[in-house]
């Protein structure tokens, strides 16, 4: 192994270090996994609202049982209220990961987080 070092000229070390630094600088790209960008509200699979996760707001969505309330805050979203009997989607709380989804099955409403890219196909709790 050591004998190979004699092939390394000063400029070779410089080039190697430059490319190694460039590779190290690129490394974070592999681990950012895509930031959450917007909340997507669907009824019966049809998109009824797309809300950017940059500003806080509340919207009301008409579901099969009545009115559901979707709340968005910067970087996260939740189903704040839903007329469903068991309240699973409400109790799921805030969603912030890309592709996380809260499904209010009785109301036919779903809330999912969309990101640029994700390491997961979906996240359910």
């Amino acid at each position: 192994m050591k004998s190979f070092l004699r092939f390394m000229k000063p400029g070779d070390w410089a080039v190697l270090l430059a490319f190694a630094a460039a590779t190290a600088a690129l490394a974070p790209v592999a681990f950012q996994g895509g930031a959450a960008e917007k909340a997507v509200v669907r009824r019966d699979g049809v998109v009824v609202a797309e809300l950017p996760l940059t500003q806080a707001r509340r919207i009301e969505v008409q579901g099969a049982l009545g009115t559901s309330v979707i709340e968005v805050q910067p970087g996260r979203a939740r189903v704040a209220a839903d007329p469903g009997p068991r309240q699973y989607c409400v109790r799921q709380g805030w969603l912030s990961q890309p592709n996380a989804i809260a499904i209010c099955a009785p109301s036919h409403i779903s809330l999912s987080i969309a990101g640029r890219a994700s390491s997961h196909d979906s996240l359910a709790y």
Binding site: F7, K9, L16, A22
Partner: peptide
């Protein structure tokens, strides 16, 4: 065309690979 005194095949190989 880099000066051969300082840069050898390793430099060329790295540059070509990138």
């Amino acid at each position: 065309h880099l000066p051969a005194r300082l840069f050898g095949p390793v430099s060329q190989s790295l540059i070509a690979a990138f």
